[in-house]
């Protein structure tokens, strides 16, 4: 029962702050709302007993990515500067599209019979680690390596793009 209440609290936090993150007129605040959303998501992971994922979520997302975004905001905008709000028509159309999309998806979710497994075992971190480095059948060593290369490439690319010099 406690878990149930906890879930709903987290769900409300996620939805409310998500919504605020995309509607707030101040960039810094939007970033903070994003941070709350991401932290609540991490809480959700804790709730379903995926502690490793939860910690990754908190460290990488809530810690790393949000910090990056905050840096970007600070480099480009005045923190308290208000940003231009979208056009009305655009808002209406985008809102309509989102609502329709949500309704359709939720309809599908509700009409689909999910076979929930009764087996409630938690996977330990070591299993994930072994699988990431497993080059046998079902192992993930190749995507793991690809991601490492991707991260390296994006590191270099970020430096190159940001270092570009302009004459004017």
């Amino acid at each position: 029962m406690g878990a149930q209440i906890m879930f709903y609290i987290l769900a409300i936090i996620i939805l409310v702050f998500s919504f605020l993150a995309v509607t707030s007129s101040k960039v810094m605040r939007a970033t903070m709302y994003l941070l709350f959303t991401l932290i609540a998501t991490g809480g959700l992971y804790f709730l379903i007993d995926y502690n490793f994922m939860a910690s990754v979520q908190l460290i990488v997302y809530a810690g790393g990515i949000v910090a990056l975004i905050i840096f970007a905001v600070m480099l480009t905008e005045k923190i308290e500067a208000k940003i231009a709000l979208p056009d009305k028509t655009k808002m209406i159309f985008a809102g309509l599209l989102s609502i329709v999309g949500s309704i359709v998806t939720i309809y599908i979710l509700l009409s689909h019979p999910f076979k929930e497994s009764s087996n409630d075992i938690g996977q330990t971190v070591s299993v994930i680690g072994e699988n990431l480095l497993n080059y046998g059948e079902g192992g993930f060593v190749l995507p793991f390596e690809l991601v490492s290369i991707l991260l390296l490439a994006s590191l270099i690319a970020a430096i190159v793009i940001a270092k570009r010099k302009f004459d004017n």
Partner: peptide, 16 residues
């Protein structure tokens, strides 16, 4: 992006 998303939603509706 609007075109992409609305197209995707429309396709989903049609398939459903």
């Amino acid at each position: 992006a609007y075109a992409i998303v609305s197209g995707a939603v429309a396709l989903v509706i049609i398939f459903v």
